[in-house]
Write a protein that binds this DNA or RNA. Sequence first.
DNA 1: CTTTGACATGTCAAACATGTCAAGTATGGA
DNA 2: TCCATACTTGACATGTTTGACATGTCAAAG
Lengths: 89, 89
Amino acid sequence: MSNMSSMEKADLLKLVGKRIKEIRESKGLAQLDVAVRMEGNIDTTNISRIESGRTNPTVYTLFRISQALEVPMSDLFNIEYSNSMQDEV
Amino acid sequence: MSNMSSMEKADLLKLVGKRIKEIRESKGLAQLDVAVRMEGNIDTTNISRIESGRTNPTVYTLFRISQALEVPMSDLFNIEYSNSMQDEV
DNA sequence: CTTTGACATGTCAAACATGTCAAGTATGGA
DNA sequence: TCCATACTTGACATGTTTGACATGTCAAAG
């Protein structure tokens, strides 16, 4: 997710979704496990839609997912500007 | 944004909004400047609502804002792993 | 072959984000 | 005071996310 400057909506959603799935699987969790851990009502339908990039989730939904996965929200964006600055225009 | 585990929706939205405003002002930009730099149609109304935490923005909207502000998306969440102190709670 | 688990996908309704315009507030300067 | 800039707030239409449920697919197990 380094050169985000020219990214389109569909690409962003796919990347975020893939990242969420990656984290979830690395923790050995099923979508249902995440749903159960999330605050408020949710079912796996929405998690599936988010992971496949078919929906444009709100920040609160992403927040609840990051809570359930026990990672900071920044992890969902997999941002590592380790060596450079962002988009020096 | 420490101890996010017990945060409620309204608090999350207020924090993110405050952080966006903080970054925007640190760059000497007006809401209108951000709107103009953002992809797609937008005016300052939505930016105002997001900054005041009155709406729950989608990830794509936050993405466009981070682009306009020329910061990585993680900056919008004020990740504290870097140099600042950790979770003083 | 049937069952079970995990996930994708379709539909529906309710709630909500966004975009747009208009009007209001506040501040600072001429 | 008047005017301009910056931002907030209300109302509304439009589109989309979300939650709920049903169904489809696929693989593994029995």
